[in-house]
Computed example of a mutant assay.
Amino acid sequence: MAAVHPFHIAVSDAQLADLSTRLANTRWPDAEPVDDWSQGIPLAYMRELADYWADGYDWRARESALNRFAHFTTDIDGLDIHFIHQRSSRSDAFPLLFTHGWPGSIVEFHKVIEPLNDAGFDVVCPSLPGYGFSAKPSRTGWGVERIAQAWDTLMVRLGYSRYGAQGGDWGAAVTRQIGLDAGHCVAIHTNMPIGSPPPGVLDNPTDEEKRALERIDYYRKWDSGYSKQQSTRPQTLGYGLVDSPVGQLAWIVEKFWSWMDCDGHPENVLTRDELLDNVMLYWLNASGASSARLYWESFGRSGDSRPVTLPTGVAAFPKEILQVPRSWCETNYNITHWTTMPRGGHFAAFEQPELFIDDVRAFFDTVR
């Protein structure tokens, strides 16, 4: 069995000095000719964020905070995978596997790991291949299916014969695939259920279905350009993201603004430090291209259409990218638990940790 190695986040002073120089030498575009975010993240806010990143943000303090968790790496299929493995003090702890997505990272879970430990759960949070401190695949083939198989291998390697899996965004797709493959997983939970309108819905939709269809239409028209670029030309995009910290910052923070339940501004929900913590995991590891390749690997390929038969819990947050009614999801999952949340968006654990924790606990307590 492959070894599991302790890992400590230790960014070099040279990397931080390089970031400082690049921020100081940013060549800025002209200001947008509108007074809102309709053309993208506004110049004034970007300058404010970049100035804080350069002069106010304390990476060493943030690095220390992330290092309070137990980090490890292990080789799976020739790729070094980074993960947090934080054990509960309870002898009957039930293991939970959390998978992030794009443009997120393990940082999304920093507010829920310890409370879940206290509630009797061991928590495992891997970084997707090409994301964070995980290695970057040098060959094609690391799509959703392979990641799901790798995650099951990881859990078995950590000594778990049964576990639960949770995810949103790409984590939702990986978690669903884990549920399909079963392996050692006994139940799944998602905050981004995958569903589609059943036949006839477009002829006479309910009010809930009308809202869902409007959200789909908005996403396709105004919010999906990033995915088209990342699924078709991730390498081309990567040159700018890996070279320019402000470019990487804008590419990520604009999506946090768009996908969070934040009343028009990302800092209404997350602190400036939290936003930058997440961006740093992309910048420090030059992950602009490698993270985008998951779209190239996965889009345009026929997915597994089988339904998940494992017990499935869903936390439906009102500002999720696509607000899919339960009736659209029933054919894809064995839904035994559905919670309609009062607030929150795409980055559920990051935005609304208390709601997220309560729902995860309530669902997985039924199978522990």
Rank of each mutant, 00 (worst) to 15 (best):
W53C: 03
D152Y: 09
P129R: 01
A148K: 02
H85F: 11
L66I: 12
P103R: 05
A165C: 09
G78T: 11
I113E: 01
R60G: 10
G120A: 10
D152M: 11
D77V: 06
Q166T: 03
E114S: 10
T140W: 10
F109Y: 04
N117I: 03
G164C: 08
G164Q: 06
P137K: 05
I147T: 05
F98D: 00
L97Q: 06
V144A: 07
E108G: 01
A119D: 08
Y131L: 02
S91Y: 15
P95L: 15
H110S: 07
G104C: 06
V112D: 00
D118L: 14
S161A: 15
D122H: 10
D152P: 07
F98Y: 11
H71L: 08
A54I: 08
P126F: 02
K111A: 05
R68W: 13
H71Y: 08
P103V: 04
Y57I: 07
C125A: 13
E63H: 14
S105C: 07
F83D: 00
T74L: 09
Q149S: 14
S138E: 11
V107N: 01
D55N: 14
G130T: 00
L97I: 08
E114D: 12
K136H: 10
H110Y: 10
P95T: 15
L96A: 10
R139S: 11
A165Y: 04
I113K: 04
Y57V: 05
S105Q: 04
I106T: 04
F121S: 02
H71A: 03
P126D: 04
R162W: 09
D77F: 09
S89L: 15
R157K: 14
V144T: 07
Y52C: 12
K111D: 05
V156D: 09
A65P: 09
Y131P: 00
W59D: 06
P103L: 07
S138F: 07
M155F: 13
T73H: 10
D80M: 13
H71Q: 11
A70P: 09
I84W: 08
F69R: 07
G164E: 02
P95N: 15
E108T: 04
T73N: 12
H100C: 07
K136T: 02
G104W: 02
S138V: 04
G159C: 14
N117S: 12
V156P: 10
K111L: 08
S89K: 15
V144P: 01
Q149W: 14
D55T: 11
V107Q: 03
Q149L: 15
W102E: 00
F109G: 00
S134R: 00
F72A: 11
A135F: 03
R62K: 14
E145Y: 11
A119E: 06
Y57W: 12
D58Q: 15
D122W: 05
Y131A: 02
G167E: 02
F98L: 09
H100M: 07
R62E: 08
W59I: 06
R139M: 08
H71F: 10
W142K: 02
Y57M: 13
P95H: 15
G104I: 02
Q149V: 13
A65F: 12
L66K: 11
D122V: 05
V156Y: 13
S161E: 15
P126G: 08
